[in-house]
Nucleic acid binder design. Structure first.
Length: 273
DNA sequence: ACCCCTGTTCGGCG
DNA sequence: CCGCCGAACAGGGG
């Protein structure tokens, strides 16, 4: 599930634990989710610490503790955060459980594509400080977008939209939705976009991200009826705009759904089929 | 049984 | 050195 709005949704699941002490830490330290972490240091620093605040950025989450320690969570493809009662016994896919007096904060991930990061000390961890501009922030300007597209000019625009250092939080369905709303063919090389196309891409990116945040952040809600999203999962989906059949293909290694009529012909330089 | 999947990382290659 | 691409990672669901 996790793209920016769902990440924000899951971040809030642990909000009831803010301001309260961690009394017990249970983790499956051997799992690849914890790669790069020394489990003993982790348990020692988090045990007895107070969860102070949390923040999400793109697909990443940060939880700050005092005494100074930072927990990063990336949900991968199937990660989730939830709350369970105190003294909870973790199940097979519950890789991290932070016990508090009144609840247990749980991270689960059946497919193990997620990742937990940890940093002790008062300075913000590097992996958080080095984030790209959020697509919803003032830093995500037309010029910033154009420069990023230029830097990845030979890659298909669909693949570029999935690069987290340019479009933090954009995932597969959002990328397709953005390209459909901007009327851009997903196989178009990023460097081939004209200024008008870049402008549409910029607007669509912000609109899709903002709308998704509004509709999904409080609870998992539906997206607007006239979005591509609602058709993209169907076997034989139709374009919500002109009702013509959608096409399904693979671009940048990922399933891609688009409307050949609205989004133009495949560019000759990049014959995807 | 077989195929598909909302994400990232890494090695090969141009 | 840079950047793109496919494979690999693991497990569950259709």
């Amino acid at each position: 599930m996790p793209e920016l709005a769902e990440v924000e949704y899951y971040r809030r699941q642990w909000t009831p634990g803010l301001g309260e002490k961690i009394t017990r830490v249970q983790l499956h330290a051997a799992k690849r989710i914890f790669r790069g972490i020394d489990p003993e240091t982790f348990v020692r620093r988090i045990s007895g610490a107070i969860l102070r605040e949390s923040e999400s950025h793109g697909k990443q989450m940060l939880f700050r503790f005092s005494p100074a320690a930072w927990l990063g969570v990336h949900l991968g493809m199937t990660g989730k955060l939830r709350v369970e009662p105190p003294h909870f016994t973790p199940g097979k896919h519950d890789h991290l459980a932070l016990g508090q007096r009144r609840r247990t904060l749980v991270f689960s991930d059946p497919r193990l594509f997620g990742r937990i990061r940890f940093h002790a000390g008062s300075d913000v961890p590097d992996w958080w400080a080095q984030r790209a501009h959020s697509v919803l922030s003032g830093g995500f300007t037309l010029g910033y977008l154009a420069a990023f597209l230029r830097r990845h000019g030979r890659a298909p625009i669909k693949a570029v939209l999935l690069l987290q250092n340019g479009f933090p939080g954009i995932g597969n369905w959002m990328a397709d939705e953005i390209l459909w709303q901007a009327s851009l063919h997903p196989a178009l090389p990023a460097g081939a976009l004209r200024p008008a196309g870049i402008k549409r891409l910029h607007q669509a990116t912000r609109f899709v991200a903002r709308t998704a945040m509004r509709r999904i952040t409080r609870k998992m809600d539906d997206l607007p009826d006239d979005w591509l999203f609602n058709e993209r999962w169907r076997k034989r989906g139709n374009c919500p705009r002109d009702q013509s059949p959608l096409k399904r293909t693979t671009i940048g290694g990922r399933t891609t759904v688009f409307c050949p009529r609205c989004q133009g012909k495949t560019p000759a330089r990049h014959p995807q089929e």
